[in-house]
Simulated scan of single mutants.
Amino acid sequence: MAADLEAGAVKAIEKERNYMTFSNDVKMPPTYKTAGGCTAYDPPEIAYKTLVGSSSDRILRKIYRRQVVAGIEKAGNKCSCELRFPTWDAALQEYETRFANLADDDSSAWVFDFVHTEMLVNGENLDDFCSKQGVF
């Protein structure tokens, strides 16, 4: 009887182990759904550095937003999921080409202006502009 209980317990434990994993190696998918139903991409991880007081992450996000605004303007100020939430490939390429190798100092006025200038679409914030068109 005890052997049967023990064998049953071993089977139950094995069955439970088949359902559970405890690994930190599991990568989250690089995309997610926005509240408006669009597929959006997670930003890539880049080496941390600062330029004129701004982190590399902030600079990359500014590049991304500028490219999004340019794409929307090129499409006649029409937002779509694809234009509002493109991959980060072009932004990462621009970051690596224009910013990644710059010296970490406060002498680059153009970098400061680039990071601190908000890009607007028809005078509106990007998120507000696209939300009015149902893309968020």
Results as ranks from 00 to 15, higher is better:
1 M>T: 09
1 M>E: 15
1 M>P: 06
2 A>P: 02
3 A>F: 15
3 A>C: 04
4 D>A: 13
4 D>G: 04
4 D>N: 14
5 L>K: 15
6 E>H: 08
7 A>R: 09
7 A>N: 11
10 V>M: 04
10 V>W: 01
11 K>F: 09
11 K>S: 07
12 A>C: 15
14 E>P: 00
14 E>C: 13
15 K>C: 11
16 E>Y: 01
17 R>H: 14
17 R>T: 13
17 R>N: 12
18 N>H: 12
18 N>I: 12
18 N>V: 04
19 Y>H: 12
19 Y>M: 00
20 M>Q: 14
21 T>P: 00
23 S>V: 14
27 K>F: 12
28 M>Y: 11
29 P>K: 06
32 Y>D: 00
32 Y>R: 01
33 K>P: 14
36 G>E: 01
36 G>N: 03
37 G>Q: 09
38 C>A: 14
39 T>F: 02
39 T>Y: 00
39 T>V: 13
40 A>Q: 05
40 A>I: 05
40 A>G: 12
41 Y>K: 14
42 D>F: 09
43 P>K: 05
43 P>G: 02
43 P>I: 04
43 P>A: 05
44 P>Q: 01
44 P>E: 04
48 Y>C: 02
49 K>D: 01
49 K>L: 03
49 K>R: 09
50 T>I: 05
50 T>R: 03
52 V>C: 10
52 V>W: 02
52 V>L: 03
52 V>A: 00
53 G>Q: 11
54 S>I: 12
54 S>E: 03
55 S>D: 07
56 S>W: 11
58 R>Y: 13
58 R>L: 03
59 I>P: 01
60 L>R: 02
60 L>D: 02
62 K>P: 01
63 I>S: 04
63 I>F: 03
64 Y>P: 05
68 V>R: 01
68 V>L: 12
69 V>Y: 04
70 A>L: 15
70 A>R: 11
70 A>D: 15
71 G>Y: 13
71 G>I: 06
74 K>L: 13
74 K>C: 15
75 A>Y: 03
76 G>A: 08
76 G>M: 03
76 G>Y: 11
76 G>H: 07
78 K>A: 10
80 S>F: 05
82 E>V: 14
83 L>D: 09
84 R>F: 09
86 P>W: 15
89 D>A: 10
91 A>E: 00
91 A>I: 02
92 L>F: 07
94 E>W: 06
95 Y>T: 02
95 Y>R: 01
95 Y>F: 14
95 Y>H: 07
96 E>T: 14
96 E>L: 07
98 R>W: 07
99 F>G: 00
99 F>M: 03
101 N>F: 03
102 L>C: 08
103 A>L: 12
106 D>Q: 11
106 D>G: 15
106 D>F: 11
107 S>H: 08
108 S>T: 07
109 A>D: 09
110 W>T: 03
112 F>C: 11
112 F>R: 11
112 F>Y: 02
113 D>Y: 12
114 F>M: 06
114 F>K: 01
115 V>Y: 05
116 H>E: 07
118 E>S: 13
119 M>N: 13
119 M>Y: 09
120 L>P: 13
120 L>A: 08
124 E>L: 08
124 E>R: 07
124 E>Q: 10
124 E>W: 04
125 N>T: 06
125 N>M: 10
126 L>S: 10
126 L>R: 04
128 D>K: 08
128 D>F: 14
131 S>R: 14
132 K>H: 03
132 K>D: 06
136 F>G: 05
